[in-house]
Amino acid sequence: MSATVRVQDAPFDLAAETALLTAGRGDVGAVASFIGLCRGDDGLAAMTLEHWPTVTQAAIAIIAAEAMERWPLTGCTVVHRYGRMLPGDPIVLVLAASGHRLAALEAVAFLMDWLKTKAPFWKREEFADGSDRWVAAKAEDEAAAARWRGGEGVRGRG
């Protein structure tokens, strides 16, 4: 099974996406998941995600293929939303399925670290007082992504 990648404005369904990863197969021992939500810090009223429509899907597919290459996954799923989100709204879903948990957990962490630093999305925050600002890239996100640079995904068996 290969990676499933979708870029959409609609919300996603964790249970349905998980079922698609495991349907009809008995070799999946672990599905790890991550959901990123819009967080309402500091009076945030809404967040709009802009992306590069002709490039985003392919850019995420490259990241997902890299995860499939580094870990013994039976499949993985990335659904990334764009458009305007309110606090509590889900933004991104990442799933990784494997025979064992360590590969699945590591692959999800890798996918999120690379999505944050390599996929062409930009967040603009709107605040309750009417002001707005573009989110600046964070050095800690770059550092988190850099820890995977050597290609040393642990071939998890745990």
Binding site: G36, I91, K116, A119, F121, W122, K123, A136, A137
Partner: peptide, 8 residues
């Protein structure tokens, strides 16, 4: 041209 990305 674009700023450093901030998705995820």
């Amino acid at each position: 041209f674009f700023p450093p990305v901030t998705g995820g």
